[in-house]
């Protein structure tokens, strides 16, 4: 199987998915998901204390994915580590065989399970991308030479439907300038709006993977509309989910996701998708089947 870097270069449509490390040391479910997905996608993102909830580190789970023959993307946030820890985490990741890193700012601590924690945010996502670029060129952030460089493929995130969009686009351009090679977007449901974003993003030499978040119920869709910035599920989709038989809404959600992926691929709108089936990782193969 080609590496994620090769897939980005050569494949017309790249597929990544996401696994979330557990809180606690029981990794059986996680390993099951890794086994299930590793050959079906080009790479697996591993979240970094997702939603500011304390879990196994992203790096450890990346290594588990490598051990099981998959390709991981290390998600690295600026919330929990200062610049020393971030760089040391990156070097460690490279030594352990991780080749891809997604640089994020990270959620604020107040949304998580340790709201009393001291938030770090020593660097921001743009500066973190710069740092990766420096480490790739055998320098650290303070300008010192290192013994042995990294060779990461660095990625970043963007919210194509942020409101207002202009500051978000300025940051997107800064991320490109800071060395981001690929982007995984916030969840996208409105194809027309996303096309408009892609018309803009196509001007830059980066690969864009559209974010696909599996809708499991009309309630979840409404919740995201009301509470998650930058996510807008059109009313038409919410109605489709609401009309589903009891317990069958997830099947409708899988169909919606599959159709979305199909269209993105057929029309060549973007370079791939990033599937986030939060808590329902075992249904990702069904989504991929629906996308055929």
């Amino acid at each position: 199987m080609p590496s994620f870097a090769q897939a980005l270069q050569n494949k017309s449509f790249v597929v990544t998915a996401e696994v979330g490390p557990p809180k606690g040391t029981d990794v059986s479910r996680l390993l099951h998901h890794i086994e299930l997905l590793k050959d079906k996608v080009d790479a697996l993102n591993v979240t970094d204390n997702q939603s500011s909830v304390m879990r196994i580190s992203s790096l450890a789970v990346c290594r588990l994915i490598l051990d099981h023959g998959g390709e991981p993307i290390l998600q690295l946030t600026c919330r929990d580590r200062n610049r020393l820890a971030l760089q040391s985490e990156l070097l460690s990741a490279w030594v352990l065989g991780v080749k891809n890193v997604l640089c994020l700012t990270g959620d604020y601590v107040s949304v998580g399970d340790h709201p009393q924690a001291k938030p770090v945010f020593d660097l921001d996502s743009v500066q973190l991308l710069r740092t990766v670029e420096l480490l790739n060129s055998n320098k650290d952030l303070a300008g010192h030479d290192m013994q042995g460089a990294t060779g990461f493929v660095a990625g970043a995130v963007v919210t194509p439907e942020a409101d207002p969009i202009e500051p978000q686009l300025i940051k997107f351009e800064k991320k490109v300038a800071a060395g981001a090679k690929f982007f995984q977007t916030q969840a996208v449901y409105d194809l027309e709006k996303f096309k408009r974003f892609m018309d803009y993003a196509r001007r830059f030499p980066v690969k864009v993977l559209a974010g696909i978040v599996l809708l499991v119920s009309a309630g979840m869709a409404r919740y995201m509309n009301n509470n998650v910035p930058g996510i807008f599920v059109p009313e038409r989709l919410v109605e489709q989910l609401a009309k589903a038989e009891k317990g069958k809404a997830i099947e409708v959600g899988i169909e919606i996701a599959g159709q979305m992926i199909r269209q993105l691929r057929q029309d060549g709108i973007c370079d791939g998708v990033h599937i986030m089936a939060i808590g329902k990782e075992e249904r990702v193969p069904d989504i991929l089947a629906a996308a055929q």
């Binding site: 990270g106 921001d124 996502s125 919210t159 500051p167 978000q168 800064k174 930058g230």
Partner: peptide, 13 residues
């Protein structure tokens, strides 16, 4: 809240 120096995070709403 995150003292970002290069633009808004994805949480801007």
């Amino acid at each position: 809240a995150k003292n970002l120096l290069n633009g808004p995070c994805g949480g801007t709403n």
